[in-house]
Design a protein around this nucleic acid. Sequence first.
DNA 1: GGTAGACCTGGACGC
DNA 2: GCGTCCAGGTCTACC
Length: 303
Amino acid sequence: MKFVIPARKPFNFLSVVNSHGWRQLAPFSYDEATNTLHHILLLSNGRVIELKLRDGIYGVNVETEKLNRSEKKEVTDIVTWMFGLDLDFSAFYAASRREPKLARAKKLSLGRLLRAPTVFEDVIKTILTTNTLWAATRNMSRKLVDEFGKPLNSVGRVAPNDSEGRIETKSFPTPESIAASNPDYIKEKIRVGYRAPSIYQLAVRVASGQLDLESLKTSDLSTLELRKELMRINGVGPYAAANLLMILGRHDFIPIDSSALTVVSHEWYKGKPVIAKDVEKRFAKWGEYKGLAFWFWDWKYNG
DNA sequence: GGTAGACCTGGACGC
DNA sequence: GCGTCCAGGTCTACC
């Protein structure tokens, strides 16, 4: 079946898909030839379906298997969250109107970041981005999905190929499926190294109900309190917390990693080494839009 | 509050 | 094929 989920204007499908690297991490895959974002989704009733998401004139076109009414409602809510379809960036566009380095923001409808269906998935993936190279992050995500994900149950499905010919056939693991394992097995099988205890502990806390990550989607905590909450998770430090805040729609902190230091160094310091404080200083004037200004800045240096 | 060092994987490189 | 080096954030111990 096919249906359209409307977006608040302005909206640009490709700007969201390309907002960061999430589209390359299982169980996402992206078909460059048809500009189709695929995601293998586990519904609350246990059914696993494939979503094919494309640009629609007024929002996101969804193609998937036949769904009943409650399944369709669930998919609509999830896709709305993943694409931030209800978000309003007009205040950011107004604030950045006179900044040439952000001139393209409104034109390209920049601001939305692609999200996973669950905060749990976004936190695990963010931990997998820390202290490693992007290729390793992709490998770890893939192995995690292969090992603990639930398989797609459609028959005769033609699997999509992304730019590297990858085929996704399983959903992202539930906290319960990871919690049923153990840190040694995760370390050995998924090759996540020292991250294994953090991943396992997070899964156990969420599966047991001790930690309700999904409530953070609608939390009315201040950004500072939310940041503290995120940093209570093992494996989540300043960078990871800022990254997750951006995903949650809070833009007061900058995810400062080594590449951030590099681009800022080339932008303002002639390539000389800089520290996190220098990055903060350069974007301080953007206040609650600091993260957005940094993320969508038109950098001189692109690596 | 600031800093140093350990943590671990996988790719690049030299032999 | 093997060994070595390096990049990449977080955490802990220490000052």
